[in-house]
Write a protein that binds this DNA or RNA. Structure first.
Lengths: 194, 194
DNA sequence: TTTTTTATGGACCAATCGGTCCACTTTAAG
DNA sequence: CTTAAAGTGGACCGATTGGTCCATAAAAAA
């Protein structure tokens, strides 16, 4: 019963996702968002509340649309298969032609002003939560196929997380798809086949 | 033949190193630097030229004082020993009680405004240069002791670099010394002892 | 057609950014 | 003692930051 939106919210979220992904939260300015979406500040704030709320909407979409491979990976029946699918998924994510390089969350989480600290903390919490889920799955599946001898599920989870972050940094630095693939393959050399 | 400095340049560089290290280049403001050093903008600019020139002075010191373990590592006689010393060095760096967490260069290199782009590119160049030196040393020393079977010197160098970056991210996220040590050990499980 | 409700454009805000400028001080050389 | 050179403090600069406010526009409900 009022004036209708002149823009497509989905479209705007898609556009802002690309921006935040590429530059992280703090380095993406309202001006950037306005220029990329064609919207005015008023429309953005009316529709999304604030820069931060818009960001969280975007993170939600990011996880749903681009980090979905994590669920499939965790469902695999052996440690090696889990690790493989995780590293493959990350590699594919970073080499997607249409995707900005790097990881939205990592690009946001590393540095920034004091104002951005709560956001970084929150992202960090999510990452640690995933690490715990990964460790749990390693624990559950190491009966089906062992981890590399001498490696605990905790070691393995931390190692894989470190590799994922490392690959994200490399991607941001311009590493090629082949490089990422070879790193992933090399990292798993000692992981027993199921 | 003029008025003498009222501050110790070494001391100022030490202080600004800590700031840039913790927050990266762009997230460290002139106000931060002034507050931490007790100097005015005039003194800083007179002594160092600009924020960027000061930053490069600081990077120089960082590499000299904190990244020196890389030289020792590259001088080791086998691939595994090289990799070990690199990962140990990074682990020690990130767990130093007096050090800010994370890596000065990584904290600067990931995101920022368009103005900071040249700085990020330059840091990136240095990183790639080190990767090439590492690959070269793997190539030279793999006669003395082999790399893990199926891993080329290029794979190995990219893998170790990825791990180093990953460990830096983890450190920034608050990972403990023990965690870092276990990741390093786990990563090298399949590397033949010399 | 009038009223109500929402959307939009743009002016405006204080705070902060890196950087410049200049008056003033302090020292050593002459 | 004068002069020249360098250091210092602080006012000032334009640009940019995220965010607010209000007048106007548009459409559905009455």
């Amino acid at each position: 019963m009022a004036r209708p939106r002149e823009f497509d919210e989905e479209e705007v979220l898609k556009t802002t996702l690309r921006l935040f992904w590429e530059k992280g939260y703090e380095s993406t300015s309202l001006s950037d968002l306005m220029a990329a979406t064609g919207l005015t500040k008023s429309s953005l704030y009316k529709a999304f509340g604030s820069k931060e709320e818009l960001f969280w909407r975007v993170v939600e979409r990011y996880q749903r649309d681009f980090l979905d491979f994590r669920h499939a990976a965790l469902a695999e029946p052996t440690p090696r298969r889990i690790a493989e699918r995780l590293l493959d998924g990350i590699t594919a994510l970073h080499s997607g032609e249409m995707n900005p390089v790097g990881c939205l969350e990592l690009n946001t989480a590393l540095t920034g002003s004091k104002e951005g600290e709560p956001i970084r903390q929150e992202l960090l919490r999510g990452r640690e939560q995933f690490r715990l889920r990964l460790r749990e799955r390693f624990e559950e599946t190491m009966a089906a196929a062992p981890l590399p001898p001498g490696m605990t599920s905790d070691d393995a989870a931390s190692l894989i997380i470190s590799l994922i972050q490392g690959l994200a940094v490399q991607a941001k630095a311009g590493a090629s798809l082949e490089t990422a693939r070879r790193v992933a393959r090399a990292a798993l050399l000692s992981w027993p086949e199921s």
